[in-house]
Nucleic acid binder design. Sequence first.
DNA 1: CTGCATCCTTAATGATACTG
DNA 2: CAGTATCATTAAGGATGCAG
Lengths: 120, 120
Amino acid sequence: MAQPEWNVMLASCPSRTSLARIANKWTAMIVIALSGGPLRFGEVRTAVEGISGKVLADTLRDLERDGVVTRTAYDEMPPRVEYQLTDLGRTLQEPLAALGRWAEQHIEEVITARTAYDSR
Amino acid sequence: MAQPEWNVMLASCPSRTSLARIANKWTAMIVIALSGGPLRFGEVRTAVEGISGKVLADTLRDLERDGVVTRTAYDEMPPRVEYQLTDLGRTLQEPLAALGRWAEQHIEEVITARTAYDSR
DNA sequence: CTGCATCCTTAATGATACTG
DNA sequence: CAGTATCATTAAGGATGCAG
């Protein structure tokens, strides 16, 4: 049998929407950034270098909606908003950190393969 | 320190491109589908239900370029093309399967959180 | 018929400006 | 500071066509 037992690949399977949410580069980097503890909006933006404010705000809202992060707004001046992983979000740390480690450990092979592919 | 030791999140870090490639729903599902052994184009398309031919062809080409899958075209009639994971691709199986398991195991919580968020 | 390439539509992302 | 709104840009996605 070529397929695993689970059915995430079926279009009808609702866990596909869940996979689509976490199998996403911004989600991965944001969760990894929040793994060390709560961060404010601007701190996440700094940690996940290169993300635009709009995309960060959108992604954080989606993650909050899905119960992965909590958003705490302090009514101060200047305003302060902190994001942190929920219990559910913490269960994502390990799988996503593993992906991050893969990216680090195998980047050389990927670049080598890419170069070989392009020069032909 | 709030950040992990590695620097995947820095825009300047090249492993980000590698993370972006694998942190993607189609990539995840294709690699998972190929985990059981080589499949032909149409079989992958059936396994990863809902993907269009173009997107599948594009994604497979990118994965081939990055050294994650091999593409073998047999000069037959009707045409046959088989895709299979490389050694590098097999190192991706575990991390991506873990993501798939997460999606399956926590989909209920995600849906609950989403419903709660929407009704307020 | 299978595997794709081409075209075109739509959704995601980015830059900028502005408010509480 | 932490957003939101608007617009410009780009990438993802789907429909169709064509060669092997």
